[in-house]
Nucleic acid binder design. Structure first.
Lengths: 123, 123
DNA sequence: TATCGTTGTGCCTTGTTAGACATAACGCTG
DNA sequence: CAGCGTTATGTCTAACAAGGCACAACGATA
């Protein structure tokens, strides 16, 4: 089996609002990543434990938000069909990861201060 | 009149999860800020256009999450009563602002890239 | 051609959330 | 002491989101 997804945990998983049509958060990004690994929407949904319909809806939202498709799908054929990320989809993941990494790196100090205020450890 | 609230717009308004009892986002912070300016929960709620009950609930969630009160309230008395931020409340705002500023400053480049992907301007 | 596992939709039910409304307690003020 | 504007709380309902189920279309494969 493929190692699928294995990433380090971040404290901050940003949600970005662009205009009023697009909002990108950890859920959609994780889903894209899983689709990329599985080459299938339904397989990705199963893997993430969410219903196919919801997965499809999330992706459809992205497609319509950007005006261009984030994944390309095929119904029927080998294995019943499948889904592949478009270049836009790959770039989206890439950019989000870069943003997330930079945020977590630079925000670490203030984050710790916030946790101290709460008297708890973040998990 | 007091200048109330007048802050520069940030693209990223982070929501931080600390443990499982605390989650802090732009809504609660803005509310705290308004309570601080108005010295009243109900006035702050009116100003932000949300029902009193919701405002109170948000604050109560913070109070219980932190184990210590974020604001101090008084029912009855001059003007019917009022609410004042505790030192913890002030620190919370301060820390959140610092985090937000740092995030937005350091993430600007990736953010622009994301907006370019969308072919839109963030607003 | 029958089968299979996908994608893509629709419908209905349920669960959660948000809001409206009502009301009590409180303590200055006139 | 009556009035006022708060804080604080309960209840009820409407709106919305989530999930479940069903099913058609598709195209390689056997």
């Amino acid at each position: 089996m493929k190692p699928s997804i294995n990433r380090l945990k971040h404290l901050v998983r940003p949600r970005i609002y662009i205009g009023k049509a697009i909002n990108i958060g950890p859920g959609k990004i994780d889903l894209l990543r899983e689709v990329d690994a599985m080459r299938s929407i339904s397989a990705a949904a199963r893997s993430l434990g969410l219903p196919y319909k919801r997965a499809w809806l999330l992706i459809d939202t992205l497609n319509r938000g950007f005006g261009n498709p984030v994944i390309e799908t095929a119904a029927g054929g080998k294995g019943g069909g499948g889904a592949v990320l478009t270049p836009l989809g790959h770039q989206l993941i890439e950019r989000y990861d870069a943003l997330e990494a930079r945020i977590n790196k630079s925000a670490d100090k203030e984050l710790q201060a916030l946790c101290n205020l709460a008297g708890k450890t973040a998990d």
